[in-house]
Each structure stands twice: as C-alpha cells, then as structure tokens.
Simulated assay, not measured.
Amino acid sequence: SDNTNSEGEECCNNDLCVPTAFNVTDHAWYVRKPMAYAEDYYGAWEGICLPFTADKVVASLNGEITHFYGSPSDEEAADPKRNIHTLHHEYWLRSLTSVERENGVPSAIFQRPDNDAVNGVVYTFSNPFFINKYGSWLYNKDANPYYAEEHTYPEYPRLAAEKPYIVRFPGERYYEFDLSSTFYNELLGEMEEAQTVTFNAYGKTQADHTSRVAATVPVTKAMQTAVADGYAHNGTFAAVEVSRGTVYGINHQGTAFDDASALSTVMPFRTYMSVTTDGAMARAAYSHLINISELKGGAISPDAMDDEDNAQNDGIIVRPIGGHRVSVESEVSSRMNVTTAVGLLYRILDIQPGIATYSGFQPGLYIFGKTKVMVK
C-alpha cells in the first residue's frame, strides 16, 4: 500500500520483464489501488492483466472478495438464495467476447467468466467482515445469513495468468461493499483510506490456499485476445504509449477505450485495445473511440432478487437529496414500506406516478422496498 516492495524499494508502475520462467514456491502478489470506484451502473472500468493466476483477491479493509461469473441454473434463478453466480459476490471481472457497432461507434462487449470445469477450482469462501462490522446495522443473521457462513463455489474461474480483463470495484453507492471506504467511514465514524486490492498467487508451501501445487510466472510475451471483427484486447507488463489509430487506452471515466486517452500511457499490468493486422473492416470504419458495452452482470447486494445492476424497485427509483429528505420517482401507483437497517417498519409511503419529495427522516440507513438508501 505504500508503493514499496518487501525490500523497502519503491515499486510503483514499474515494467516487468521475465526472460526466464520461474516457479513461485511461497507467495506472489500484485497490489492495485483503483483509479475510481463505481458509483452507478456505468464506468469505473479499468484493465488488468497479471503474470500469474490469482488464487485469492483481498481488499485491504473488507477482506476476501470474489467476482461474478457464469450464469445461474434454472434452480438458482428460481431461488436467489442459492444463486452463487450472479449474486453474493463483491466485484466485477469481464473478458472481451466481441465488438459490435452502435451508431457507427465500436462497442466492445465484455462478459463474465464462464464456469470452468477444466481450469476452474473448487473455491471455499469465508469472510465474516460484513457480519462483524454491519451485523447490527444491515444484517438480520437469521433472515440473511449468507456472510455468516462458509460457501463453496464449484468450477470457480480464477483471474487467469496472461489474460487481459476489465475489472470494476464498488464505491459508496454499493453501501457495505464500498471499497472507497466512504460508506464505512460515514456509518461507523472512522477515517480509513480508500482500499487497495491485492491479487495473490500461492506456491507449494501454501498449497492449502489453492488446488494448484505451484505458481509459475512465464516468459513475458505479447498477449492479446483477438476477435473476428478486427479488434484485439491486449494485456501488457510494460508501459505502452497510446497512439492515434493504433492503440486505445481506457479513459479516466472508465467508459471507453480512447486513442487520445488523457492517460496517454497504458501502465504495466493494465490493458489496451488495438486494431488487428487483418482488421480491414475496423480500419475502413475508423473510430477514435471504442465504447465499453454495459450489460447485466450481478447486483452487489446480499438480498437482491435479480441480477439487474440498478437501484430501483420495479419502476420506482429512490434517491437521497439531503436535508433528511428523499426523492421518489415512480411510473406506477404503489404502497412502499420503509424499514430501518435492523428490519423495523419505520414508515409507509403511498407512491403516485411522477416525482415526489418525502421529508422528516432521521439520518441513517433505510430500506425502501428493496433499495437501501443512506439518508443524511
């Protein structure tokens, strides 16, 4: 977290060059401080590509975290408590599958990793942080015991070595899952810094952490995932200059790859997009921007009833607006229960179509229907 290695030497965005492959017998790790934390459904994506397969991913305060993957079975879809694929995970990981065009602008489609019977592992997850820190605020342990128990994910696809991905980490909008620490600090009166995320690989001496017996760091080489329509998503272990028409870096907002990115340089262990050598179609229809397509991918909420990543209740959107007030925008007439964080009924709202303001709330966390809202 202080940008130094175990020898106390500065180690911040340095290039990595491995001329000879080697095995890690104990522990290898990579630390990332996110450039941004997701505050809504769009943006905050950043590239990641590592020289080893990550056995466990750990946030500096929240502890062990896992990514959404695959698709729920029919049984899981019918019973969300059993859904281990698109619910009950703490960050997003995607890989490129195709590039389409929307209004003439390329749109790169990134999907969750699929279940992996060949390269996946049986992953045991246990993280009591949420129960320990928020049990009296957010969790009824009897009704919602997920984080009070140990869970096993079969065929869990780990972040693979030398494969480019995009990744996104939750911000304050995701409440207790927030890795910017804003929610934690405001609720508990602490002053924690924004969290770093560590990707760990374990070797023979720590074999209990993984089903693999060794971690190998291979010879550094060019890496890319090419797609049929003329674009490639590339990982890099050395800094790469963004250049107009050939190399696209992710912009500051994390919404697109831009060939004039303000970042100008793609840092090591991150990713960029490029036109492939046979990408005649892509060159003929040149665009300086490649948007990141925003698809469904898992709501970070232990009590969510579907995998749509939004903050609404069947056409009703609730937003805090300060002054002990909330704004409710609705397309329907409805009656909404408002409960406290510990499940006590606080108020009943008669909702009408349109936008209305409700006042008189004491500062704190409330659940409006299915939506958690922090009122200030």
Rank of each mutant, 00 (worst) to 15 (best):
P363L: 09
L365V: 15
G203I: 07
D116V: 08
Y175E: 01
T25M: 09
S211Y: 14
A77C: 04
F110Q: 02
A108H: 04
W29P: 00
A160I: 05
D208V: 14
E75D: 03
V99T: 00
E76Q: 12
I48K: 04
T271L: 08
G245I: 13
I109P: 00
M35W: 14
N83W: 05
A59K: 01
T225W: 08
Y174M: 09
R158A: 08
T277I: 11
Q253Y: 15
N313I: 14
Y174L: 05
A356Q: 06
E155S: 09
F130R: 00
N5A: 09
A262D: 04
S60H: 07
E9D: 14
S211L: 10
A299Y: 03
A54L: 08
K163D: 01
N185K: 11
E176H: 07
N337A: 14
T246S: 12
K204E: 11
K33D: 04
N185H: 12
G369W: 10
A284C: 03
L344A: 08
Q195Y: 12
A228H: 10
A260K: 11
K370H: 08
F68N: 02
R319C: 07
G43A: 02
E9A: 13
S327K: 11
K372R: 14
C11F: 11
V197F: 06
F368M: 03
G364R: 08
E75T: 00
R173W: 12
T25F: 12
N103F: 13
V24N: 06
I317S: 02
K81I: 07
Q195I: 08
K370Q: 07
T205V: 04
M35Q: 06
V318L: 09
L87N: 00
I84D: 03
S333A: 15
E162Y: 13
P128T: 06
Y42L: 11
E162P: 00
S261M: 06
T97I: 07
F169V: 09
